[in-house]
Computed example of a mutant assay.
Amino acid sequence: MTDPNAASRPVQAVVLAGGQGSRLRPYTDDRPKPMVEIPGTGTPIIGHQLSWLAEEGVTDVVVSCGHLADVLQDWLDSADLPVSVKTVVETEPLGRGGGLKFAAKHLPHPDRPWYATNGDIWTRFSLREMADFHTERAATATLALARPRIPWGAVETDGFGHITDFIESPPTAYEINAGVYVFSAGFADLLPELGDHERSTFPRLARERRLAGYPIPQGAYWRAIDTAKDLTEAAKELAALGR
């Protein structure tokens, strides 16, 4: 039976892998952030991402490199990859929006939608369902939304000020940008040549009701790897999940 939504789903993606990862030192002294391995997984973050994208129907990926680009390129050249990968390197800093626009110019199908992900995200959920959500809302851009756990214990009180409970690392009350996106074909034209799209393009689309937010399904794994503590926590979580 033919899936009526299949034609509208992206088959191409951009991975933003140019950050310096200064908060992950010393792990990033000799490799870019996406090349850092979660202990116990045997796979760098970008290897996990490429496998996930392939499972979700992606065939072509543009990897935007920066810090220690040659280390990442060497690994991509030697690895047995499940997708076709092209790397691009910014010759000068373009900012997040400019870098995304530069990478998008190298996608093989400029007239088709595309996914994008930050190079430090370790997650698993259905991109196909996110793409369908994007299409149903006729959005120009859709952001995945996560509700991460806060790193502290929380305290619950009653109306009189008595403490009633302690909760260890509860989910935050707010959803955050999870660093995974679906973009319609014309989105790249709205990006700045230089600067941050989250301060220009996204607010403009929000005002025009063309920006959608897709909550990552409950129970799906998501973590941004920003610090050494994130590596340790991710290793524990993934071991508990049997991954």
Rank of each mutant, 00 (worst) to 15 (best):
P32W: 01
K33H: 05
M35F: 04
M35N: 01
M35H: 01
E37Y: 07
E37V: 13
E37R: 13
I38A: 08
I38M: 07
I38N: 06
I38T: 03
P39S: 11
G40I: 07
T41Q: 12
T41R: 15
G42W: 14
G42I: 11
T43Q: 14
T43H: 13
T43S: 15
P44G: 00
I45K: 01
I45V: 14
I46V: 10
I46E: 06
G47S: 05
G47A: 07
G47H: 07
H48D: 08
Q49L: 13
Q49F: 06
L50K: 07
L50C: 09
L50S: 08
S51V: 06
S51F: 03
S51D: 08
L53A: 06
A54G: 05
E55V: 00
E55H: 04
E55R: 05
V58D: 02
V58A: 09
D60S: 05
D60R: 05
V61L: 03
V61R: 05
V61I: 03
V62G: 04
V62A: 03
V63S: 03
V63Y: 03
V63Q: 02
V63A: 02
V63I: 04
S64I: 01
S64V: 00
S64L: 11
S64F: 08
C65E: 00
H67Y: 15
H67D: 15
H67T: 10
L68K: 04
L68N: 04
L68G: 03
L68M: 08
L68D: 06
L68A: 06
A69N: 02
V71H: 03
L72E: 02
L72V: 03
L72Y: 04
Q73R: 11
Q73E: 08
Q73H: 04
Q73N: 08
D74Q: 04
D74K: 00
D74S: 06
W75Q: 03
W75A: 05
L76Y: 09
D77T: 05
D77I: 00
S78C: 07
A79K: 13
A79I: 13
D80T: 12
L81D: 13
P82K: 09
P82A: 10
P82N: 10
P82Y: 09
V83H: 13
V83L: 11
S84F: 14
S84W: 15
S84C: 15
S84P: 14
V85R: 10
V85L: 10
T87W: 10
T87A: 12
T87P: 08
V88K: 07
V88A: 09
E90T: 12
T91Q: 13
P93A: 11
P93H: 15
L94N: 09
L94Y: 09
L94D: 08
R96H: 14
R96A: 13
R96W: 11
R96Q: 14
R96M: 14
R96I: 15
G97I: 06
G97W: 06
